[in-house]
Amino acid sequence: MLFLQLFYAFFKIGLFGFGGGYAMISMIQGEVVTRHQWLSSPEFTDIIAISQMTPGPIGINSATYVGYTAVVNAGYSHAIGVVGSIITTFAVVCPSFILMLLISKFFLKYQKHPIIASVFNGLRPAVVGLMAAATLILINQENFGTSSFQVITSCILFIGTFIASYRYKVNPILLILICGACGFLLFNESMPSFI
């Protein structure tokens, strides 16, 4: 049953994932965190961090990771976890293959068709909303902490990273490494506390 659910969830993500990697984050979050609770919110954030630092699209990365983790968390062995990750990765690319076979029949006529153009006029603003929702959902106690020290530090890291990325286009990997180092220095219990 779990395997069917995993397949169905990632098939839907592949089928409705318009607008690139970041828009897909909202879709994956909706299925994996909100609906099925296969991952907690911080676990999901951690995968996005790992995806940013490793090669490969976020869609594939999260499918593989969730497939494995959800199965192992349900009490199965590591080997069956690997089967789970194969199922989810296959499921997320499956719609692309089906669409390819359909579209190749009309091929270039398809994208210049006025119906497709008007559908995309509706989709584009909604994708912006999806990305905003993904951000808002992730601003929570699990990611930003509960103690006032951690909340304040998290807000500073959030604002700093936002400005560095949006305004100065600093490489995201570098930003993740810097914030990871900050976390290590500030939150590690074996280190002497700064406050």
Binding site: Y22, A49, Q52, N143, F144, F158, Y166, G180
Partner: peptide, 19 residues
Amino acid sequence: ESIFKGIRPAVVALIAAPT
């Protein structure tokens, strides 16, 4: 865990910026 505590707010900002 302490490293990821620093990374998580950064990741949220990295999704906010492309929005």
